[in-house]
């Protein structure tokens, strides 16, 4: 473990989706919506911090985010939580990016600023979009292996990783030569920064990079580089009957269950 590892952790600033308010027209009220660090990315950062500890600090954690200048906040938080350096990819030309354009932009950052990276760790998905597409798409752009839904790292050497992938349908143990991209599911957070960590974060300068700084092809970034677009957006969920009962519920539940079972039998006949 002589090598000084470089671990990139991508962070996304997301609206707090647990606190969404609606306008009269059933659109999301964007003003006053709190922004938070994507909870999955906290788990990614924690994994990076653990690896650094395991390597007896012989690792550097580089946090990076794409977004408006306000996304500085989540990078400051990432620094307090253990990142050593932080970059913000911020340029009007990046806006309106779908997952393909985002993956291209992030991969250009990696290629131009941290070409000698060993690991990229991402949250499995972001709570605003829930697509889980950007990390895999980026791994392809960088030509590296991906281990999504990484549950645990079995072995980590200077040049290879063996990790357990755990999904709802299957588990798989995968070995790959570094560099590798990992994605991490949401876990409980347990890092509690102390005041000194916040002071260090405040004192660390965040480098702001635009499209030219990462040699991005204008046709592949932002809105123009995004093949997908939203045609229509509307508020989810259908209305149900919504009958409220406070007594005699056992007999109601029993009859509902028998009714469903009768239907079940018809279906099989």
């Amino acid at each position: 473990m002589d090598k000084n590892f470089k671990i990139i952790v991508f962070i996304k600033q997301v609206p707090d989706t647990d606190d969404i308010k609606w306008t009269e027209n059933n659109t999301i009220q964007r003003e006053g919506l709190d922004s938070i660090i994507n909870p999955y990315d906290l788990s990614a950062l924690q994994t990076a911090v653990e690896i650094k500890k395991y390597r007896k600090k012989n690792a550097k954690i580089i946090a990076a985010a794409m977004g408006p200048i306000q996304a500085n906040d989540v990078l400051k938080e990432a620094l307090a939580l253990g990142a050593d350096e932080a970059y913000l990819l911020s340029d009007k030309k990046f806006s309106g990016a779908d997952t393909l354009a985002t993956a291209y932009t992030l991969s250009q950052f990696v290629k131009t600023k941290v070409p000698d990276f060993d690991l990229i760790i991402c949250g499995q998905q972001a709570v605003d979009g829930d697509t889980a597409q950007t990390p895999s798409s980026m791994a392809e752009k960088l030509g590296i292996a991906q281990i999504t839904c990484c549950k645990s790292i079995e072995e980590l050497t200077d040049d290879s990783i063996t990790a357990l992938k755990d999904t709802k349908d299957f588990t798989s143990t995968i070995r790959a030569k570094l560099p590798v991209l990992l994605t991490i599911d949401r876990q409980g957070t347990y890092i509690n920064p102390c005041i000194n960590d916040y002071i260090r974060a405040q004192d660390t300068e965040i480098s702001i990079l635009g499209a030219d700084d990462i040699n991005a092809d204008a046709a592949k970034i932002g809105f123009s580089g995004s093949p997908t677009y939203v045609k229509r957006a509307y508020r989810a969920l259908k209305d149900r009957k919504n009958k409220i009962i406070t007594e005699d519920y056992i007999s109601v539940l029993k009859s509902e269950i028998s009714l469903a079972k009768e239907k079940e039998n018809c279906g099989n006949g």
């Binding site: 779908d98 997952t99 393909l100 993956a103 889980a132 597409q133 950007t134 990390p135 895999s136 798409s137 980026m138 791994a139 392809e140 752009k141 991906q146 999504t148 839904c149 999904t167 709802k168 349908d169 299957f170 995004s226 093949p227 997908t228």
Partner: peptide, 19 residues
């Protein structure tokens, strides 16, 4: 599925298509 969500973005990125 977990398999589909793992492989689909890789294919889309390889072919430079939307997903």
């Amino acid at each position: 599925t977990p398999l589909g969500r793992d492989v689909a973005p890789r294919i889309a990125s390889k072919m430079n298509i939307g997903l």
